[in-house]
Design a protein around this nucleic acid. Sequence first.
DNA 1: ACTCTATATAGATGGTCATCTATATAGGGG
DNA 2: CCCCTATATAGATGACCATCTATATAGAGT
Lengths: 116, 116
Amino acid sequence: MVIYIGVIRLKSDYENNAKIIKALADPSRLKIIDILSCGERCACEILKHFDFTQPTLSHHMKVLADCGLVESRKEGVWNYYNLNTTNCNKLILFLMNLITDTEDCICKDKPKSTCE
Amino acid sequence: MVIYIGVIRLKSDYENNAKIIKALADPSRLKIIDILSCGERCACEILKHFDFTQPTLSHHMKVLADCGLVESRKEGVWNYYNLNTTNCNKLILFLMNLITDTEDCICKDKPKSTCE
DNA sequence: ACTCTATATAGATGGTCATCTATATAGGGG
DNA sequence: CCCCTATATAGATGACCATCTATATAGAGT
């Protein structure tokens, strides 16, 4: 017997994922993700790809790390960064579920409205 | 003979996609996408799912329509909205490419750096 | 023509954000 | 112990954004 347990998307699902998406909603941070997709990089190496200053990169890396898309590792003075691919995949999965007409949609308890 | 033509990601790719992602970086707009994933809805029906005012919804729908994630259709006084699934899929594909270590990465012209 | 409803526009407000400069911290090498 | 380099923090600034109220537009029914 298979019991299908529908996943109800909560307010917090939208909020938490919006936070992560907000972290991605910046051209520089998209480029950083692109760079890290090739493997681990240290901060000073990443910085070479950009025109902005070091404190600005520090800010961007903090944003990406805080939302879990990126992980960091300290080695002496150097900070190495890695993609957290699990969390990246989770975000993409969330988006794919969002745009797909699934059983767990917010609308399933209502008839198709045409504003009668 | 197969000639592989690498796709170089341009500054404008990051910028354009960041704009679309920015449109998604809001809990209310994620919820709107979720609602529209079940099919066409009119503005007044979407509004019922939220606590904010009608002008605020009008603003959100404009943001989603301007970036191409949503399409609208006028019928008398009513505005009907639909997901533009092609563009939604394009965005997700962009993200999947971004986090994948592909040949067309920004880093491929440089050796793996360890900041020597 | 009048009124009701659906939607858009204008302008204001309080909050957040990317970026900067200046400065602090902290590890490594001579 | 001092200096150089890597990184973080603080504080400021200008831009943008979500939301509101007030008002305009515009279609539909009586």
